[in-house]
Design a protein around this nucleic acid. Structure first.
Lengths: 203, 203
DNA sequence: GAGGTACGGTAATGGTCGTTACCGGATTTG
DNA sequence: CAAATCCGGTAACGACCATTACCGTACCTC
């Protein structure tokens, strides 16, 4: 799909400018002229490299998804279950609440109706990898008896939701800025505690 | 804010057509002409009633948010904690995975950058009411010793995330259609079980 | 050093769309 | 019944914008 193209500075500048604008203002509100004003170069270059505005947008989404989510987040060697979950929750929150990642998600949601395959490939290249990994982690933990038997995929989805909690919902709506490290740690720890032990008093 | 206007069939027809189009195709991709084609009437009526395309959009979002989320979902008299949570989870999933609600959310997210106050009022009039109610329920349960002491707001956010889990994320991206009643029950029950007791074996 | 190619800048084209103006008929009002 | 108001339909206006064409220059090749 992506040829191992030699690094092209014009292409990189376009991508960077396009990311700034598309992620901040959305697809429709971003004009080709605005991208050129920011990146320099000329429109011919965009059409030579990407064919159309939509082509640029799709390339942008795909490459950013891979770059953001590909960063070796998922699948390190396993520590204890609890430590693994804590690690994952922290990294997940860092990633998901990052301004760029939020912008990417917002614009993919906004265009999901018009470009369903793009939304699907975003999910597959991005969030689904984390989900699949956690499902595996949980499945192995269940086999070892460290957690109750469960449907690993359902449980993984629960854990993701628990970590994102309502904070992510607010962030996506633009109601909260990015989280501090302390907030991230607090939410991640609370999520792992609840996921493993629940809120009901033991014993 | 909203005068108790007498029911105006032209206004209602416009609202309904606008909802179909805005929620399905988004703000920019919906033209005034398309709304008129579907609703009948003339553009003059839109500009007389709403002033502009954006005015129509804002009225649409506000009224639909109130209508969808106002439906006495939150705050019924309390059963047992567990039954209350199960009820709430089921209703929340029914509401959030409903096609209309998803469309509303998508378009609010898409325009959140351009219309931040609209996104804020959507959250306040809608999801926040459920969150505040659950926080109260949890606070009382903690006072009774039925659950561990907790920060009620944090715990409420966790519960919401746990119920939405990853399924909602997928639905918002358009990757899944609405859920069947059986799926809703399954996910809601699993969420309550995990929230109360966690995944770790007891004893 | 000559010829050609690549590229940035700018203008032109064609279409869409929000908004406003105009027209004719229907309905209401005195 | 006459006058005025309302409203649907259509056209006009102006702006924006994706896309393409054109032009001049700089660099690269031979």
């Amino acid at each position: 799909m992506t040829e191992p193209s030699p690094p092209d500075p014009r292409r990189a500048a376009l991508m960077s400018a396009a990311a700034d604008l598309f992620f901040e203002r959305g697809y429709a509100a971003t004009s080709i002229d605005a991208i050129i004003d920011r990146a320099g170069g000329s429109k011919r270059t965009i059409y030579a490299l990407f064919g159309s505005k939509e082509g640029l947008f799709e390339a942008l989404v795909r490459e950013n998804t891979e770059r953001m989510f590909g960063a070796a987040l998922f699948g390190g060697e396993e520590l204890s279950l609890e430590a693994t979950l804590r690690d994952f929750a922290t990294h997940l929150l860092e990633l998901f609440t990052n301004e760029r990642t939020v912008g990417l998600y917002q614009v993919v949601v906004a265009e999901a109706g018009r470009l369903p395959e793009l939304a699907a490939s975003f999910y597959r290249l991005g969030p689904e990898r984390g989900r699949a990994w956690i499902a595996q982690v949980l499945e192995r933990a269940a086999a070892r008896g460290e957690i109750l038997p469960c449907e690993p995929d359902l449980a993984a989805g629960q854990f993701l939701g628990l970590v994102r909690s309502d904070v992510y919902y607010e962030i996506v709506l633009g109601l909260r800025g990015p989280l501090s490290d302390a907030e991230i740690r607090h939410i991640a720890d609370a999520a792992v505690d609840t996921f493993l032990d629940g809120m009901r008093p033991r014993g």
